[in-house]
């Protein structure tokens, strides 16, 4: 111990790598939320084909490791479409997380009282209109705890991008640990950065719950 000044001297590297991690996290979170919402609405639609497609997507993408989905996105799609590891990571992690987001969003929408659907219909709202203005705003409140804890899982999963050669926090720390011969200090520092980030996300749950609280 006592050799932790290597961490301070490498601060620029840690900062750059953390920034890559943050970008991958935010972009794949946006993708996963959009796709997950689409899947949840498909699952609740009146068309059997859409319901079936959504259920199959969720089964397949939750049934295999995120790493395998990332391999599809990098070795196959990325290779054929000329994506960078950064792009492949966002698509792969986003698709993997979307399957979980779909279930969380669906559970939130189903938790909205049946009477709200019936009342909206009785008032002559179209389905698109009442989903957007009545059901989703109420469902969001129910979703928040699961949505946040699932997002911390996604934040940790961004480390998988190291396997496809992206120099995000985990991959860069591993390289640095090898080149400096100080794995304890370097990997501990990386762990602390992740702990701060995941704890911050967990604490943000309270903020979002207050933000979406019922205002009477």
């Amino acid at each position: 111990m006592g050799e932790f000044d290597i961490v301070w001297r490498s601060r620029a590297i840690f900062w750059n790598a953390s920034w890559v991690t943050i970008q991958v996290f935010i972009l794949s979170l946006i993708l996963a939320t959009a796709v997950g919402l689409g899947l949840a609405l498909m699952r609740m639609s009146g068309f059997r084909i859409l319901r079936w497609l959504s259920a199959t997507f969720v089964w397949v993408f939750r049934g295999m490791p995120a790493l395998v989905i990332l391999f599809f996105s990098f070795f196959w799609l990325g290779n054929n479409l000329g994506w960078s590891p950064f792009q492949s990571a966002i698509i792969g992690l986003g698709a993997s997380s979307a399957a979980y987001k779909a279930e969380i969003i669906r559970a939130g929408l189903l938790a909205v009282d049946r009477g709200q659907y019936e009342a909206s219909e009785a008032l002559g709202f179209t389905k698109a209109h009442y989903m957007r203005r009545i059901i989703i705003p109420q469902g969001i409140r129910v979703m928040i705890p699961n949505y946040i804890s699932n997002s911390t899982l996604l934040l940790k999963s961004t480390s998988l991008a190291a396997v496809i050669g992206l120099t995000e926090l985990t991959g860069r720390s591993r390289q640095l640990a090898n080149s400096t011969f100080q794995p304890i200090e370097i990997l501990t520092a990386a762990g602390v950065i992740y702990l701060v980030a995941t704890s911050f996300l967990t604490l943000s749950q309270g903020y979002f719950e207050r933000h979406f609280e019922l205002k009477r």
């Binding site: 940790k156 480390s159 396997v163 985990t170 794995p183 990997l187 762990g191």
Partner: peptide, 10 residues
């Protein structure tokens, strides 16, 4: 709070 991959490297 830490990715499994990092635990494995550790």
């Amino acid at each position: 709070g830490i990715p499994l991959l990092l635990i494995m490297f550790y």
